[in-house]
Structure formats: structure tokens, C-alpha cells
């Protein structure tokens, strides 16, 4: 049950803005359609009153925006859902922003819809959607209202929610949850169980749809490099468009490798992908491998923890042994 409403957040933000405690608010802003809620920076209570939304589409993770926002004068207010708070911690671990310049409000989360999920449920004439108790109500132009169970129709990232616990905040609104087990590695295990050929066919099919829009990278709270290697002519691997099937593989492997051990599994990459490529399955593979081989590790669960790929144990398994396990 979400006890935190738009009004709760609005009141809180207005008060903090009024007292001068914060000078900006990172929040969700209404878009052209009801389902394209976007992240935005609000500078006054009036702006917020006009455009701020908090509904089932308020899924965007704000942590990454803090890098830019904290570089400015004054303090930023940010709302952190559980998964956002992991990214928040991870960025702090990597010294990417100044904690002193953030006022973080933790809010509980019961799963957020995203536009593509709802669109898939109502392909024709989608108007808006809302939550009514345990149900998802979709209003459409031609077919009237569709009522579906909310929890069952969540996008993948929320169905496989790793945690309902906000791990970093200055103030918590509503009741904080716990880390949950949601079988998020099941899909990875299924793929692992397939033959090499089948896996290749699967990924070839998925990755060949990539249009290299870079949305996955740009939204990823772990991809915060000043300059990405793929944009850097000096790196030797620069490429900004695709002209061969190799390149999307290269891009996605390297991207997954660069965030391996740092990825908080927030699922933003898959959410924003316009081609609906299940990119989270790449990141989860690394998380799964890390958990199985080097001990459970959740990036961002704790500020200051040492990422597994910049760490080692003398008794780590050999690469060949890790591969054998992946094959089972």
C-alpha cells in the first residue's frame, strides 16, 4: 500500500524550498501524455504545483542527475525509491557527488509501470492508466477501461524487485521495506541452460535490433564517465553508430563489463530501450556470476563497499571453472 501521495511529496518539497534548506528539487514532471512522465528539476513550489507528478509512471531513477545538480550552488532535494537509493550509494562510493549538497527523501515503492509495458497491454488508443488498490486500470479511447491485477502486470524490473528497502536517505516518508528475493536470476539461469548455439541465436536476435541510440548508457546511473570510451577518439574503440553486427555486441559487452560489480540492477537500461532489448539480462549475468563465484554482493547496498572487480581473494575460482558452471 502506497501511503505516500503526490500531496505528501509536494508539501514536503514546498516546505523545504520555502525554508531555503534546498534550492532545487529533482522530481517527475508530467509530459505530453499521461504515461510519459519525465525527470525534471523544479526551482519553485509554483512550478511543482503545476507540473510535478507522482503516479504509477514515476519510475525514473534520479541518482545520476545528482552529479550535475550538486555541481551547482545550493542543496538539491531528491526523492529516492528503494532501487534509486542503491544507485545513490554507489555513486557516493565512487565519489561522484557531494553528499552534503543533497537532501534525500526516501519513499517506499510497490513497483512502477513504464510506458512500454502499459502500451503493450493496450496497444490501441491508450489514454492513461492508474492504480486502484490491487488493480491497474487502463483507460482507452475505443475499448473503455481495462482492469488488470497490478502486481502481475508490472514490468520485469519491478516483478523481479531486488529490494523494497531505501538504503540511503535523510528522511523517510512512509514505511521502509526489506530486501526481497524475487528470483531475478531465473531468466539468466534459463539462458545459461540453453546450448551455445541457442544462446547465440537469442542474443543475435536481440542485439541486432540495437540502433545505438545510447539511451541505455545515458540513463544508467553507473555509466557516469566524463567521457565514454565509445565517444573518445583516443580510446581506440570509439564508435557512435553501427554498421556491422559486431559493434553492438562490442558495445553491450564492454558496457556491461564496465558496470559489472557497480550495476545496482535498477533496470533503467531495459526500461528506456526503444527496441525493447532485455539489456538487464547482461548486467544480471554479471551480478549472478559475481554472487556465485565471489560471494553475494549488492552494489550500492552499503556506501564505500569495494566492488568485486576491483577486489580479489586468493582462493577465487579459475576462469575455466567459472565457465564450466555457466554451462550447466
Amino acid at each position: 500500500m502506497q501511503t505516500v501521495t503526490r500531496e505528501t511529496l509536494l508539501d514536503k518539497a514546498s516546505a523545504l524550498l520555502a525554508s531555503g534548506e534546498v534550492s532545487r528539487v529533482l522530481g517527475w514532471k508530467k509530459g505530453e501524455f499521461a504515461y510519459d512522465v519525465t525527470p525534471a528539476v523544479f526551482e519553485s513550489a509554483e512550478e511543482m504545483e503545476k507540473d510535478f507528478v507522482y503516479d504509477i509512471f514515476s519510475g525514473a531513477n534520479f541518482s545520476k542527475y545528482l552529479i550535475k545538480e550538486t555541481a551547482k550552488e545550493g542543496k538539491v532535494l531528491v526523492f529516492l525509491k528503494p532501487c534509486d537509493s542503491y544507485s545513490f550509494n554507489q555513486l557516493l562510493t565512487e565519489h561522484r557527488f557531494d553528499r552534503e549538497k543533497v537532501y534525500a527523501i526516501g519513499i517506499p515503492c510497490d513497483g512502477m509501470m513504464d510506458a512500454s509495458t502499459v502500451k503493450a497491454l493496450a496497444p490501441e488508443g491508450l489514454v492513461s492508466a492508474e492504480r486502484d488498490g490491487d488493480n491497474l486500470v487502463i483507460h482507452t479511447l475505443y475499448d473503455g477501461d481495462k482492469i488488470l491485477p497490478y502486481a502481475d502486470n508490472l514490468p520485469d524490473r519491478c516483478r523481479h524487485c531486488k529490494s523494497k528497502k531505501v538504503v540511503a536517505y535523510d528522511e523517510m516518508l512512509g514505511e521502509n521495506g526489506d530486501v526481497v528475493d524475487s528470483h531475478r536470476f531465473d531468466e539468466v539461469a534459463e539462458l545459461e541452460a540453453m546450448s551455445e548455439d541457442a544462446r547465440f541465436a537469442f542474443w543475435q536476435n536481440e542485439l541486432s535490433r540495437c540502433i545505438r541510440c545510447n539511451a541505455c548508457r545515458d540513463v544508467c546511473p553507473a555509466c557516469t564517465c566524463e567521457k565514454c570510451v565509445f565517444d573518445n577518439p583516443k580510446s581506440g574503440v570509439e564508435n557512435k553508430a553501427i554498421s556491422d553486427s559486431y559493434e553492438e555486441k562490442m558495445f553491450h559487452i564492454i558496457r556491461a563489463f564496465h558496470v559489472a560489480g557497480r550495476c545496482t540492477d535498477c533496470g533503467e537500461c531495459s526500461r528506456v530501450c526503444p527496441q525493447n532489448i532485455p539489456l538487464h539480462l547482461l548486467n544480471r549475468k554479471f551480478i549472478y556470476d559475481i554472487d556465485r563465484n565471489y560471494g553475494d554482493y549488492m552494489a550500492g547496498a552499503e556506501e564505500g563497499s569495494r566492488a568485486p572487480l576491483v577486489n580479489y581473494k586468493t582462493e577465487d575460482p579459475e576462469a575455466a571453472d567459472v565457465l564450466e558452471r555457466g554451462d550447466k
Binding site: V188, R199, F257, L282, V322, L323, G326, D327
Partner: peptide, 9 residues
Amino acid sequence: AMLFSMLNY
């Protein structure tokens, strides 16, 4: 170990 596991994946 991670990279080769990913390539095999």
C-alpha cells in the same frame, strides 16, 4: 572469468 563467462553467455 567474468568476461569469458559473458562471451559464452
